[in-house]
Write a protein that binds this DNA or RNA. Structure first.
Lengths: 165, 165
DNA sequence: CAATTTATGTCAGTCTTGTTGACTTTCCAA
DNA sequence: TTGGAAAGTCAACAAGACTGACATAAATTG
């Protein structure tokens, strides 16, 4: 027996292959726009997207260890080490030996690191702000819910929590 | 659940730096999850993410030209040409000389190309389907709105339109 | 205390995918 | 018809991922 009802209802339509295809392409194009502004700035440095990511998460979690950063970024330690070495040598990140466990290195942004972080994140915040404003609070709530379900569950704990006053 | 606050609260809260930072990190982690499944499959081939993107958009727009694909993908023609050459040599994409303008190449997936496209997109559709289902139709609508505003406006016309029967 | 594990760093080599530069073929307009 | 623009191709290089092997120091375990 075949159900001949067309999927007109909103509750069914949002799971058609067309909708899913649209979602896939939204991810592609939105991510490209999202990374384009910082990329332009980074071209003036010897840095790339990998450096931006390291700077971002060290800023968000000052004192984080290399291992924690590896978990967040999902790259190999050799890959991360290359960018950290450069950023430490260039004086944007400070690496302090751990007090409790002296094998660990705790990472902090220097004032120069903070300056670059601001410059980079400013462009992305501006883009997000414009998108949020145009879409409205309810849409933002929906955006958040879908995005959290797209990511791997283990990564959710790394996403910034919003302070509710 | 949407918290109902006095006008100043609700209409401003979703534009705090905390919210914007959260949005930035949602983009990062969601995109990483989104690309992880196809990446795993592609490891068994000599192909990478660039090949996936080419296959995806040739599938979506059979007969598209190299130039149109360049506009969509936002890479240099030399970069795109390399992956197209491989895919044509391997018999996944067919390149036909244009009839009206013989400088153009029109691109089509072969049956083998269609097979790989299905295999790759299946994993992404599955992830999107699960996320959409978990978040619900209203959230999906909000997701779509925010994503369309994050991307560069010129790219919106390349996003799949949903057939409403 | 010796052996093992953990955290980090480094060297070497490979792969994908971006880049620029130089080139051919084709079309079109002066 | 000829010179420029457009579409596509080939070659060489660079960034940033990867794996594998190895080193060092510190913590943990038997």
């Amino acid at each position: 027996m075949q159900d001949r009802r067309p999927p007109t209802g909103e509750s069914l339509l949002f799971l058609t292959d067309d909708q899913l295809l649209q979602g896939i392409e939204l991810m592609f194009f939105a991510y490209r726009g999202f990374t384009s502004d910082p990329d332009k700035i980074l071209q003036n440095y010897t840095y790339g997207r990998a450096h931006h990511r390291a700077i971002h998460f060290v800023h968000r979690q000052p004192g984080t260890t290399v291992n924690n950063l590896l978990d967040i970024l999902g790259v190999t330690k050799q890959s991360l080490n290359r960018v950290l070495r450069q950023l430490v040598n260039d004086g944007l990140i400070e690496s302090r030996v751990g007090e409790r466990d002296r094998r660990e290195r705790h990472l902090y942004l220097t004032p120069e690191g903070v300056a670059l972080e601001s410059k980079l994140s400013e462009t992305q915040r501006k883009r997000m702000r414009a998108a949020y404003k145009a879409a409205g609070p309810d849409a933002v709530q929906g955006f958040r819910q879908v995005m959290e379900h797209i990511m791997d569950p283990a990564m959710r704990r790394h996403v910034n929590t919003v302070k509710r006053d």
